[in-house]
Structures are given as C-alpha cells and as structure tokens.
Amino acid sequence: MKRRSGYRIVPYFILIIVCLYNIVPFVWMFSTSLKTEKEAYKIPPTFLPKEPTLESYDQIIVWTSFPRYFLNSTIISLGTALLSTFIGALAGYGFSRFHFSGRATLIGFILASQMLPGVLLVGPYFKMLVKIGLYNTYPGLIFAFTTITLPFSTWMLKGFIDTVPEELDQAAKVDGCSTLGAFLRIILPVIAPGMVATMIFAFLLAWGDLLWVLVLTSGDAMATVTLGLSRLVTQFRIIWPQLMAGSVIATLPPLVLYMLLQNSLVKGLTAGAVKE
C-alpha cells in the first residue's frame, strides 16, 4: 500500500517543537550570563543581551571560590567514574562468567540496594565518616558516589560482558593468561564502549549531586559547583547573571563529555541496559 507523503513531515514537525523546548532554557541560561545585573532585572525582560558582557564570568571566577569548587567537582566525579566502572566491571565479570551459588540472590540484593533513598543513608554515613576521620575529604565523597552508582554500573557491564563470547577468555587462558589476566587484557578492551557509557553515567551522577555534598562537607574547601551555586541562590539577594555564568561553567564538562562520547553512550546503554 502506498503511504501519503504527509506522514513524512510529521516526525520533523514533532522534532522541531521538541528541539525548541530543549534549547530555550540553554539559550536563556547563556543569555542571562552575558547580561548586566540591571538588564537581567529589566521589565519586560530582553531575550538576548543588548550589550553582552563577560563581567559576570569575571566576577564569579576571580571573586568567589568557584575555581576551587570546579576542581573539587572534577576530582570527585572523575574518581567516582573510574572506581565505579572498574569495580562494576570486576563484579560484572564475576556474575557473567561464574555460576557460583547464591549468584541470583546477590544480583537481586545489589539491584535492591538502589531502592535505598539517599536521605536514609546520608545521616549515619556522615557520623561514620566523622568517626574514621574522612568527613570533608575526597575519599569520603568518592566512596559514597561509587556505591550509589555501583548497582547500575555492575548490571550494565554484566550485560555487556554477556555479549562477549566465552571462547575469547578461553583462548587467552590457553596462551597462559590467568583469569584476572584474561579479564584485564582481553575483556576490558572489548567492552570499552560499555565502560565509557558507565563512566559518563557515574560522572554525571557525582557531578550533579547536592544532598551528599551538602551533608558531607563544610566550608569552601571541599564544596562542589552544585553546592556553591545552591549557596548563592539561598542568599538574600540573588545575582542572576553571576548565577547563570556559574551554571554555564558547571554545565560545560558534562556537556562536552557527552558530545564527545555520544556514540559510545548510546551504544553502551543499548547493549548493556536494554539487551534482551
């Protein structure tokens, strides 16, 4: 049966409207960051700045601890991404290749641990960190985020390793590799796209968190960009251009990461999280 050609326009129509919805907040954030404080409060507002200025960026970078927050966010998120992906890959390999007793129960347990809300865990975890002297440190935060992302990382990487034929491991072992050696030298390179997807996922989660940083840090030394920006907004007077300049900077790393690794991310989610 022949289709009416009108059908072909429908997807474009939908996508253009959706793209507008997706893009307008980005434009608003960027445009506000280039306005003067006076222009940002103009009634009625201007959509694009009349006289664009980088003043707000200058203020937030030079006059606040924002560069420090940025560094903290980077260290914590990278640490989480690496640790969560490596431990997740180890566990994924264990679950995929070895059928030990209690395996299904353990997988169920790991998946169920995702259901524990952060507000239940963060208080006692805070007290534990104070006791062992890891309060207000990078490891304290990295361990927390790694654990939150681990169930998802493990499950996704297990799915990925399931798709790698077991003959590959065996061939490596014939050549004299130990089990760990086969995992490190053969499996990890093959599942690289899945690892990239998992890393982005863990990175985004750690980068965007507020609750755990709010509780597990104090002062400026360990604050992250999300915490820094949230403090600016709870002040009595909100300076929107500065806040939006900070938001632009804080959105850049995840955005760039995503743009660069888009294909791996989509492929990784497809093979890992969605496989039948």
């Binding site: 431990i87 997740g88 180890l90 566990a91 390999y93 264990g94 679950f95 290749r97 070895f98 059928h99 030990f100 007793s101 395996r103 353990l106 347990f109 790991i110 641990s113 524990l116 239940l120 865990l121 963060v122 208080g123 006692p124 975890y125 007290k127 534990m128 361990f143 927390a144 790694t146 654990t147 681990l150 169930p151 493990t154 089990t179 995992f183």
Partner: peptide, 27 residues
C-alpha cells in the same frame, strides 16, 4: 571456579555493605 567468581564480585559487595549496610542498620 566458584571461589574465583566470588572474588571478582567481592570488592563490589564490600563497598555496598560498608557504605550502605552500616547506615541502613544504624537508621
């Protein structure tokens, strides 16, 4: 083979027990 498999899973389990298990019991 069983023990090997368990060893691969162990770091993940330890982290979950430490960071989730203890706080859950305390809560």
């Amino acid at each position: 083979k069983k023990l090997q498999g368990f060893l691969f899973v162990l770091p993940c389990l330890l982290m979950l027990l430490l960071v989730l298990g203890f706080p859950v019991v305390t809560a």
